[in-house]
Design a protein around this nucleic acid. Structure first.
Lengths: 209, 209
DNA sequence: TAATTATGTCACTAATCGGTAACAATTTTT
DNA sequence: AAAAATTGTTACCGATTAGTGACATAATTA
């Protein structure tokens, strides 16, 4: 007969596994992906590093377990559905993309973890990050363009290319502002002013299309 | 009387200083800024690491010496002047920005070092990188907007915000393509096709303005 | 030529990295 | 209660890190 999984008060495998998994998130948020070493993760979790190898095989496997458990497209996706629900109330779907971008910018500015994952994606070639990128591409791209493509079918407006540029620009500006704190192309990054300027531009570009 | 600076065939201070400085560039190009350690730099230069401390004080000082000696805005700036020269031949300055962006994209795709510096800028908070960012901001921003601003004065087109978004988007797409190799927003990154699509979009957005 | 100074290398330290063996303590089974 | 299996910690290993002292040798001065 299969042995029962030990779940003592002091020694609880599942509990410490969670400690380790959560520690990965904390390290990413507070120190970045470059600090994801066995020693640092174990110390953050308050647990022996030996258990990383015993329960997950390696530090990479532990990190993969954590990263795969998260959906870094959630912020975008949730606002997408929210906007979708309100879409038909408005005159057209005109504000749709504008609002999606706006919400994305706001959320990402406050989401340290997603920022660092995006930085990770463009910094290192790795199987794990390729997965995340593909995932983001599949979910985000698929859903959103299923809505926008019909609007621009037949026109010479390549909405995907435009969105790619604007989305990349949004990512870059958020990352840039959080590290340098300075201005970019004469846009003051820290002030509330910046946001309105950017959003006005996003709005304008999208409305042109 | 001041002692003459030794310039022997085998022992030449200035020559080995150059070896070390150039090694910094090679490391950035081939391995990225994260690998800028004393051991690695000295090994790349083929010289004892002790000399880094003797001649530059620390590895950081050596790196700073190298980075400050380079002008990472050069690529942009050179095309700027080239376009400037041809500007008045064209009907308007309409193609001006389009060409600047196009050339920037092309150059940056082939310039591994600038890519890694831009990645460095948005990855780490450091005095050195803040300097580079400010420099880029001052030179690039100043020159280019001195030309474009008059065109859009009085209109409600915030050309700086638009350029910021497009420039950031360009940076991001180049970095993204070099690491993931996959597609972004349905834009295939590796093919020649992508370039034409992007340029068409850049052109369109700019012409709208 | 002999003495002095600068250039360069080697070997060493202390700290930190990933990874493991040995051992202690708790939980489950018998 | 005793035996067996699992959970967890400590101490260690080899490799690599930043930084330094001792030493050899080339280049300059006297």
């Amino acid at each position: 007969m299969a042995r029962k999984i030990p779940k003592g008060e002091f020694r609880n495998k599942e509990r410490t596994k969670l400690k380790l998994i959560n520690a990965v998130g904390e390290v990413i948020r507070t120190q970045g992906y470059t600090k994801l070493g066995v020693n640092n993760i174990a110390k953050t979790a308050g647990v022996s590093k030996k258990l990383i190898y015993r329960y997950f095989g390696s530090a990479d496997d532990l990190v993969a377990t954590y990263v795969r458990s998260r959906d870094y497209w959630t912020a975008f996706s949730s606002h997408l559905s929210k906007e979708l629900a309100e879409q038909h109330q408005h005159d057209h779907g005109k504000d749709f993309l504008t609002n999606v971008f706006k919400n994305l910018f706001e959320d990402m500015s406050e989401d340290s973890e997603t920022q660092k994952i995006i930085l990770w994606e463009i910094s290192e070639k790795s199987k794990l990050m390729s997965e995340i990128s593909e995932d983001r591409e599949k979910f985000g791209g698929g859903e959103i363009f299923a809505i926008t493509d019909p609007f621009f079918a037949g026109t010479d407006v390549d909405i995907r290319a435009i969105c790619g540029l604007l989305l990349g620009g949004t990512y870059y500006l958020v990352l840039y502002s959080n590290t340098t704190g300075g201005s970019f192309c004469g846009i003051e990054i820290d002030t509330e002013n910046r946001k309105t300027r950017l959003f006005n531009r996003l709005d304008k570009i999208i409305k042109w299309a």
